[in-house]
Design a binder for these strands. Sequence first.
DNA 1: TACCGTTCTTCTCAGTTCGAGTTTATCTCA
DNA 2: TGAGATAAACTCGAACTGAGAAGAACGGTA
Lengths: 242, 242
Amino acid sequence: MVTEREFLDGYDPRAYPAVAVTVDVVTLTIRDGVLHVLLVERGEQPFAGRLALPGGFVREETLDEAALRELAEETGILPRVHLEQLTTFGDPGRDPRMRVVSVAYLAFAPRLPDPNVGGDAAAARWVPVGDATGLAFDHDRVLAAGLERARAKLEYTPLATAFVDDEFTIAQLRGVYTAVWGEEPHAGNFHRKVLSVPGFVEDTGATTSRGGERGGPRSRLYRAGGARILHPALLRPNPQEQ
Amino acid sequence: MVTEREFLDGYDPRAYPAVAVTVDVVTLTIRDGVLHVLLVERGEQPFAGRLALPGGFVREETLDEAALRELAEETGILPRVHLEQLTTFGDPGRDPRMRVVSVAYLAFAPRLPDPNVGGDAAAARWVPVGDATGLAFDHDRVLAAGLERARAKLEYTPLATAFVDDEFTIAQLRGVYTAVWGEEPHAGNFHRKVLSVPGFVEDTGATTSRGGERGGPRSRLYRAGGARILHPALLRPNPQEQ
DNA sequence: TACCGTTCTTCTCAGTTCGAGTTTATCTCA
DNA sequence: TGAGATAAACTCGAACTGAGAAGAACGGTA
């Protein structure tokens, strides 16, 4: 039994059962209107051949820095990504070989390039979240936590702007909500709401150079406003129980 | 440099710089209408004599179990507490002696007994959150994260019912919001809202045996309903920027 | 015992927001 | 040139919110 007191007295930490601390990153982006997650294929046991979230050991760095580094190693240069801590998973037995405590992170980015830029990440690829099941370790749970967090944060933060380019149309923003929520908001009400929430978007004055592929007028271009939270919130039609 | 590949090949984990994993618990309760947090006084360096959040090493148990165990050691038997994971803090240097990654937990409980029941927790005590500054390590940050989480969760979950007894009055529930938000909701509107949100509370049919200390009619008694989220939410007057 | 102040509970009412649908103008493609 | 599609604005009833007030029940005190 190890008490805090022993620890504070300078008890040699190497005498304890070793614990490894890693970060796992749930990276989401939208490609062709479908929400995708970045996964890597495992080469070794356990779970060889299975898909897993990218991740790795925490070094002499903050947890945030570790997550950013792992992400950069998988995807090459990172444009502007939103990164936030999600949940920490540490059940004994989640890795069959030793105690591993994993700090999960959630990242959002606008249409990232195909991975395979980094070193040991040749097997990394984007997978539609609907197809991302049967992942290694407890990564199904981690991904589920990330998705639910993303869905909830769209409601009360301007997070959707992290999925689109610097300048975007209201329709593109609506596409983010559609992809993440799996349900298309009412176009007219969405438009009214986005423009009425203070600080959500700001008008650039410019418009797109042409209309939509199937017709329609040119649409106005906006950029992200300064708000950190949306007030009032943009609620989804059917909030999840849980 | 330690890569994931080396780890997966069975690299000896004891060769790594040791990392300790602990849990710290932000335990909140309301006493005499004031929000209190459970703190312990540190006996040793560093931060000897300073107040800190209770916490300790994670053993052969899940993180949730570790948090519950630490809480039980500080407060004795636990009636019904709500416990949830908060954030993980792992900056290098947050503990001056070695790398410590702390998984912070948030606990809510109805008027807990005075601590000093457990073993090494003779110095544990309830402190009004307004007085809980200058804590050891980075516990000021941890506490701040816990408070903001608590404030936000009162809006969209029935968490307030975790602060009161099994049977409670609307006024007692309103007292929870007042203590946590630092602002008293409009009594009439609060009453209407609580009764209108499905699953927040259910009527017991009973009333209190006498009126308030300074007069007023007996009030009806309710118990917590089955809802996990409040819809529509009970928004605070002035949501925080951040 | 009668009264006063307090509190619970319900009600009122105007302003705001929301969901659903419609209208108008603009644009692409055939 | 016409058909279909879309952006943006508008309409309207329902629902919700904030602020205040009314009525009833109760504890303490004169």
